[in-house]
Design a protein around this nucleic acid. Structure first.
Length: 425
RNA sequence: GUGGGCGUAGCUCAGCUGGUUAGAGCGCCAGGUUGUGGUCCUGGAGGUCGGGGGUUCGAGACCCCUCGUUCACCCCA
């Protein structure tokens, strides 16, 4: 018999972690919906071309894409992120700007897994299309910041930078390439390889050998156009006005080529693994146009669900206890009473579970205890004969026997009021 | 793609320089308590020691291959 397990870089999110996961997404959705963002669910795979716009010098495109040919001969790729899909959707459907959307779902990148990195990983995020205002940048950054606050993370720091407009960025890259080329003998061979493909990313090297050269490299600030500099100053001023702490890091270069002007990253200082960026984003004015739509300003962020929860584990916040139910029905007469009673109680709005397989009283009580139920509703031979049931409060161990007809009102006195579900009879 | 660590019960692990029938704790099941959980006591189930090959009288331990996992590089959330 062959045995199977999850593919490398993927995993099962089991209870109770899956409940915690869902709660995290709920909190995120609450936050951004209160700011006017609406949910979007793009497909998980698209024409490969959609993602090639991320940049042909990016690893995400050149070596990490899950792509394949489908039965119709189309070249398909599993999405490595949401932003390109959202921009493709905008270009395809032309909604009225400003278009503010949020999403939650898995992305796929073929990488070697390690701490905080998976081949299938989930992100939540927002995107806004059609607004150029620096104050929107502030709103977006703030919403991400508030999300981390709302799950209780304390050790998150915000890093911002501006990559300038297209022209600024090109001039800077040119200057950077020249600078690094002059000092090629001092750089690691890995850095030199990166230099060939994308000089900007050399700034990301974590190798000690490269540290000094990088530290003295020209910075983007000197290359910003007047309008880009003004935009960035407005973003910083906005964050200050909201008392959101941040640092400007002119070395912050993000891995996707479409970024323009504002970029930012949320870093968990609680995570000591190499992957401590729990979220990031920036402006991508021009991406919609690249995908065949009208020239459109765009900005957004993506937050890693896995990494955020990892950070929560380290900070011991956003803990998720075992679920609790109202009642657990115990039936030692064969199970038919439990069948009727659980159905009745559920319709009345009480979350209710029971045991199966005709287990012993003791085993059923154990089940009740494990279920986290507040009360056990016991029906044995004598209760069945007299149309009563015994209600045991599992935390105080007090129990009384009452007529079955009084069960619902009695339960309410213990677990509180419950709203009846749809009446089915 | 490159490099290091690790694969023994459902989980966390112990098994000394290779030597009889492979262990513990937790969890699970049952009994102690013929109707009552969470504590306690007793018992039980559960392992082809990741897989394949090799060395040896003998391998869970040693060697090779392979798969998985983990951490780091690369890169990114």
């Amino acid at each position: 018999m062959a045995t199977f397990q999850t593919s490398p870089g993927t995993r099962d999110i089991l209870p109770p972690d899956a409940g915690r996961w869902r709660e995290l997404v709920r909190i995120f959705a609450d936050g951004v919906e209160s700011a006017g963002y609406q949910c979007i669910v793009p497909p998980m795979f698209e024409d490969l071309g959609v993602f090639l716009r991320l940049g042909d010098a990016t690893d995400v495109v050149t070596k990490e894409m899950y792509d394949f040919e489908d039965k119709g001969g189309r070249h398909i790729a599993l999405r490595p992120e949401h932003t390109a899909s959202v921009c493709r959707a905008y270009a395809q459907h032309r909604p009225t700007p400003p278009w503010k959307v949020w999403y939650s779902g898995p992305n796929f990148r073929y990488e070697r897994p390690q701490a905080g990195r998976f081949r299938q990983f989930d992100q939540v995020g927002i995107e806004v299309l059609g607004v150029d205002d620096a104050l929107l940048d502030v709103e977006v950054i703030t919403l991400g910041w508030q999300f981390y606050e709302s799950v209780g993370l304390k050790n998150v720091s915000l890093v911002v930078n501006s990559l300038g407009d297209v022209g600024d960025r090109a001039r800077y890259v040119e200057a950077l390439a020249a600078y690094f080329s002059e000092r090629a003998d001092q750089l690691s061979k890995e850095a030199l390889a990166t230099l060939e493909k994308n000089p900007l990313r050399v700034l990301d090297s974590k190798r000690e050998q490269d540290a000094e050269v990088i530290a003295n490299a020209p910075t983007i600030g000197q290359f910003l156009s007047a309008s880009a500099a003004e935009h960035f100053a407005a973003v910083c001023a906005g964050l200050e006005a909201l008392d959101i702490p941040f640092t400007v890091n002119e070395r912050l270069v993000r891995g996707l080529d479409y970024y323009r002007r504002t970029t930012f990253e949320y870093v968990s200082t609680a995570l000591d693994s190499a992957q401590n960026a729990v979220g990031g984003g920036g402006r991508y004015d021009g991406l919609v146009e690249d995908l065949g739509g009208p020239a459109t300003a765009g900005i957004g962020f993506a937050l890693g669900v896995d990494r955020t929860l990892l950070a929560c584990d380290v900070e011991k916040c956003f803990e998720f206890g075992s679920p609790q139910i109202d009642a657990f029905v115990i039936d030692t007469t064969g199970g038919t009473h439990a069948l009727r009673l659980t159905t009745l109680l559920r319709e009345a709005g009480f979350s209710t579970d029971r045991a199966f397989d005709g287990r012993s009283m003791k085993a059923q009580m154990k089940g009740a205890d494990r279920s986290g139920a507040l009360v056990a509703v016991i029906i044995g031979e004598s209760e069945a004969e007299q149309s009563t049931c015994t209600v045991r409060n599992l935390s105080s161990s007090e129990q009384t026997t009452i007529p079955l007809v009084d069960l619902q009102s009695h339960l309410q006195t213990i677990v509180g009021p419950r709203k009846p579900r749809r009446q089915t009879r």
